[in-house]
Simulated assay, not measured.
Amino acid sequence: MTVHVLILCTHNSARSVLAEGMLNHWAQRLGLEVQAHSAGSAPSGRVNPFALAALAAAGVDTAGFHSKSWDAFSGPDAPPLSLAITVCDSAAGEACPVFHGAPAKVHWGYPDPSNAEGDDAKRQAFELTRQAIGYRMLQLLALPLATMDRVALQAAATEIGAR
């Protein structure tokens, strides 16, 4: 049975997209039945090109990435979520809708790489953010996700975020 993880950021254009890409990339490479999704409370309607470039440079397939609302994960047709991770402080402070599956919820904050000044600095900021997120996603995938209950998953994911 596939474990579904939702990564949230306000605009769903940078950090949440990096996290979705890295989690899916590592899960596929490791042969794990884990599927990442990303969404935002106020989606921008576009994915930041620096995010796509950082993912592509790391060998991640970026086809089909798009900015979408978190409302898509609260309806009856939504996948049952095991975990919801906020990756920006503003999304962490917002009241989330009720997601299908009643997932465990944790916050792993990252500075917004979009705030870097100049193209070279932005490229570096996005790459460093991608690496940091990728490292945490590997730690998450080392857990026995398919057999963990909500309380254990929340505790383990919270610990990963504190490292």
Rank of each mutant, 00 (worst) to 15 (best):
V3Y: 04
V5F: 07
V5D: 09
L6Q: 02
L6K: 04
T10N: 00
A14P: 10
L18H: 06
N24P: 07
A27R: 05
A27Y: 01
Q28I: 10
A36M: 10
G40S: 00
S41F: 14
P43R: 00
R46K: 13
V47P: 07
A51F: 07
A51Q: 10
L52N: 01
A53W: 03
A56Y: 01
A56G: 04
A58L: 04
G59N: 11
G64K: 05
F65Q: 04
S67R: 06
S67L: 07
K68D: 01
W70I: 11
D71F: 09
D77C: 10
A78P: 15
S82T: 14
L83Q: 10
L83R: 09
A84G: 10
S90N: 06
G93C: 00
G93E: 07
E94F: 01
V98S: 15
H100E: 15
H100Y: 08
G101I: 08
P103V: 06
P103W: 07
A104S: 10
K105N: 02
K105L: 14
V106K: 03
W108F: 05
D112I: 04
P113T: 06
P113Q: 05
A116C: 09
D120A: 14
D120V: 09
A121V: 09
K122A: 08
R123F: 00
Q124Y: 02
F126E: 04
E127M: 12
E127Q: 15
L128A: 13
T129L: 11
Y135V: 14
R136P: 09
M137Y: 03
L138Y: 02
Q139Y: 00
L140T: 05
L140D: 03
L141W: 05
A142E: 12
P144N: 01
D149V: 12
R150I: 11
R150P: 12
Q154F: 01
A156Q: 12
E159P: 05
G161T: 12
A162W: 06
A162P: 02
R163F: 07
